[in-house]
Design a protein around this nucleic acid. Structure first.
Lengths: 354, 354
DNA sequence: TTGAAAGCGCTAACAT
DNA sequence: ATGTTAGCGCTTTCAA
């Protein structure tokens, strides 16, 4: 049927040992004499052995449980998309005896994260995927996860110090330079620009700071361009938030606003639309329901897509491949910085996840 | 281990028959007494049996050959990327006893395609993936393929009439409107625009015509914008090609050029750079080596990414899943229309295929 | 018409 | 340290 295919049995024959020995060498299970080891390795080097993953999976007949921790998707379009990605992964991995348990926590409440994380860990999952939005709490959590030797994948926010199996996300600094580039496109130099962060825990959100740094660097490196760039940061539950944004829009010298979060984007867009100003460029993040109408009617000029659905989906994929198929996962996978405009929006909405 | 899972053995037990009988019922193989049939069906109706696809695949121990037909990647950056995608698919699917044979033909020679297609079909592959760039020849080819009941996937160029298992590509019309949008960004109305096709067989290339149609439609729908849009089409081996392009660039009223093919993009960029003109916007296709430097130095303003590598890779994936795992493939998968700029280019170059 | 059994390639437990 | 063997769930062949 498949003449070219080399099986463990064949390797054993070629090396003059038994299947068991080959298996031990392949998986570094030890209990192999140096002599036998050499013989097997020699054969392995000569041929390109590709294990039959189907047989491997069937044989080991293991089932895996992956715990996925993410902020509550209710009332939050961004995390809703992440959750959607996890759900797609669920049905995909069901074929491989791998289930994904979703644990959601309150994105505004660190205690809630700690609680949920403890619960998740108590079930002794075989792997963990998380969007570690609380820095300190994530550190202690992953210390415990690592103690139990459970592999874990991070998405959305990176914490390199915890050395995850994989990080899935974007380069925040470059994201900022892309924002700046889109801001400058066809514009004239001069006037004011605002960088606006709308986040619960801004000063702990390294990636938002990085976006801003990138945004500023773009202009700083071009000395023919001069903008007065101001930073504003607010909390979603801040008092008089809407008024504060209205006020900053009032400035007639304002030429553009770069909003670093998806939820901030629609909030600012609402104000901007209300103000009736046509000459303020607005750049924000993500293809969320709340953002769509503003992009369509031109209030938002560009969105940068962080692709939360795919981030979540791929996080599970990498972890699943690691557990089930023993494939090695990349240390990190940085998504492209997708620019969404009125005209290409639908092509993104209609495209699948694969 | 996996308590919820029902196996054929379990069904047999419940129905009071043997595994073999259940299998015969499941696959309508006949040779089952009405009585036994009833008993099995009754159980099947009560439970939700999901066959273990892994076991099925291993057991049937089939191997599959997929024939991939595409233009010769030598000296063509675009098709080189497609070929790269096929090669990645090769190593991916080698795990599943599925090999992919690559057949390349001369993209400027229909006879070559016919010849190669005949050769490929003569090997009786289990599936075919093709970029059907020659319309008429593709029609007759797929007629023969269908006669042999071999499933086939198209990518790059769609021919809906041949009803492929799946089409992988982009919406060419929308691609044109995206090009137009990028052309208009921050520009003032008035002046001339050029749509340039550089293709061997332009009038047979429906998708290039569609791009142009989309490009024009964008402006036609906005009656505040007025551009004089001219179409030029050349063959890559056309006499005095470079001079002709130089000439059209000479026009001082020219404000922008939309090039509908990837190879055309770098050709025009070379002329444009040489001309020293800074006020002509250039929009083209694809992240090819030849295009990169022009995007980096600002000669090319935007690229629209068709993602040939991923198109090819996914074509094989869908076909492979169909053959090996009996998964159903989507009728078509349209890729997002990705906008590539100076700043987000690297994020695309660095990102993987998954 | 039916049941029993071999086997797909790999893993892992079990003798030796 | 090494070889043998019993599965994993399904397909398919072979007796009965």
């Amino acid at each position: 049927m498949n003449p070219g295919k080399i099986r463990i049995k064949d390797i054993a024959q070629m090396a003059g040992v038994s299947k068991g020995t080959v298996d031990r060498v392949l998986h570094n299970r030890g209990r192999v004499s140096p002599d036998a080891y050499q013989k097997v390795m020699k054969v392995l080097q000569e041929i390109d052995y590709k294990p039959n993953l189907i047989a491997r999976t069937l044989s080991s007949n293991k089932s895996y449980r992956i715990a996925a921790l993410l902020p509550d998707p209710a009332n939050d379009g961004y995390w809703a998309q992440s959750a959607e990605g996890i759900r797609m992964a669920q049905s995909e991995w069901a074929y491989y005896n791998t289930s994904i348990d979703i644990y959601t926590f309150d994105q505004y409440n660190k205690e809630s994260f700690k609680q949920v994380a403890t619960n998740a860990l108590a079930t002794h999952p075989n792997g963990v995927v998380t969007a570690p939005i609380f820095y300190d709490e994530a550190l202690t959590f992953f210390e415990r996860v690592r103690e139990q030797e459970i592999p874990y994948v991070l998405f959305n926010t990176n914490i390199p110090e915890v050395r995850p199996l994989t990080f899935i996300g974007q380069d925040a600094y470059r994201s900022g330079t892309v924002g700046a580039e889109l801001m400058y496109l066809g514009q004239q130099s001069g006037g004011k620009l605002a960088v606006l962060h709308l986040d619960e825990d801004f000063h702990n959100s390294l990636h938002l700071l990085e976006k801003e740094r990138g945004f500023r660097a773009y202009f700083a490196h071009r000395n023919t361009i001069h903008f007065d760039i101001k930073e504003y940061s607010f909390r979603p539950d801040e008092d008089h938030l809407q008024e504060k944004i209205d006020t900053l829009l009032h400035d007639d010298a304002l030429r553009g606003i770069f909003v670093s979060t998806s939820k901030g984007t629609s909030v600012v867009a609402a104000s901007l639309e209300k103000s009736g100003k046509k000459n303020v460029r607005l750049i924000g993040y993500d293809i969320l329901k709340d953002n769509l109408k503003y992009l369509r009617n031109g209030t938002i000029d560009f969105l940068i897509n962080q692709n939360p659905k795919r981030q979540a989906f791929l996080s599970v994929s990498h972890l699943g491949n690691h557990l089930v198929f023993k494939k090695e996962a990349p240390r990190e996978e940085l998504f492209p910085l997708e620019v969404i405009t009125q005209q290409n929006l639908d092509s993104y909405l209609n495209s699948g996840i694969h």
